[in-house]
């Protein structure tokens, strides 16, 4: 039984890791772009991004998951009732059933992009103006200054808050369970339902702990690597 549970949880864990990895893959770059938006001199863009960030950071991820999962279907059905019909509306109306995983990915990517954008923004805004100016008077372009001078320093600065956020993400993946996406918690609950076993639920902690432990080691290693200089 133990082996069976271990293997079954591992199947769920693969999905957990998939949510985790895909969220990072998209949210890390989108967050950077959003941070530029929130620092833009163009006011409408700046305040649009800031409002999105406020809404996303001000509401629970669980609520956002539910919204992404159910709202398109409602909109589709409502539009259908109004007699609007096209490929997109049909797709929306059928949204709920096949696209659970997609809904999870959309909600996670939006949510984490917002958190990451704030971390990037904090890092970039903390750079002293003198660094930009020193680069500029040496004849470097803005792009060169950003990539050759600023970026490395920003990365060093944001590794600690980023690692915090990324470790939170590991545990947040369990929220996918709310809209019935099969991941490790779901895999464990299956045993409670079918065999009346409770311990598999707690057994999932081992997977989380190993995963987070590995990440902690990785970030510690990166921090150490970047420790060759001080500001």
């Amino acid at each position: 039984m133990f082996n069976e549970v271990t293997l079954s949880l591992f199947d769920g864990f693969v999905v957990t890791v998939k949510i985790f990895a895909l969220t990072l893959l998209f949210a890390l770059p989108i967050g950077l772009i959003m941070s530029f938006g929130s620092m833009s001199k163009f006011k409408p863009l700046k305040y649009t991004v800031k409002t999105i960030v406020w809404i996303i950071r001000g509401t629970p991820l669980m609520l956002q998951l539910i919204a992404i999962f159910y709202v398109p279907g409602f909109v589709g059905k409502w539009a259908g009732k109004l007699g609007i019909e096209n490929f997109f509306i049909d797709w929306l109306a059928d949204w709920t059933v096949p696209d659970r995983f997609l809904a999870v990915m959309i909600a996670f990517v939006i949510n984490y992009s917002c958190y990451f954008s704030e971390i990037y923004r904090g890092g970039i805004e903390s750079m002293p103006r003198g660094q930009y100016e020193a680069g500029a008077v040496l004849g470097m372009t803005k792009t060169q200054v950003f990539f050759k001078v600023i970026l490395m320093q920003v990365i060093k600065k944001i590794v600690p808050p980023m690692s915090n956020e990324i470790i939170t993400l590991v545990k947040d993946t369990s929220l996918a369970r709310v809209i019935a996406v099969y991941e490790i918690i779901w895999a464990a609950q299956k045993f409670a339902k079918s065999d009346g076993l409770i311990w598999p639920i707690f057994y999932t902690a081992v997977y989380y702990l190993i995963f987070c432990g590995a990440l902690t080691l990785l970030f510690g290693y990166i921090e150490k690597k970047l420790d060759y200089y001080k500001t």
């Binding site: 003198g130 660094q131 020193a134 680069g135 008077v137 001078v149 490395m152 060093k156 001080k230």
Partner: peptide, 14 residues
Amino acid sequence: RFGLVFQNFNLFPQ
């Protein structure tokens, strides 16, 4: 054409 040396150096720390 010009070079500028700042009061607080502004070296690139990395």
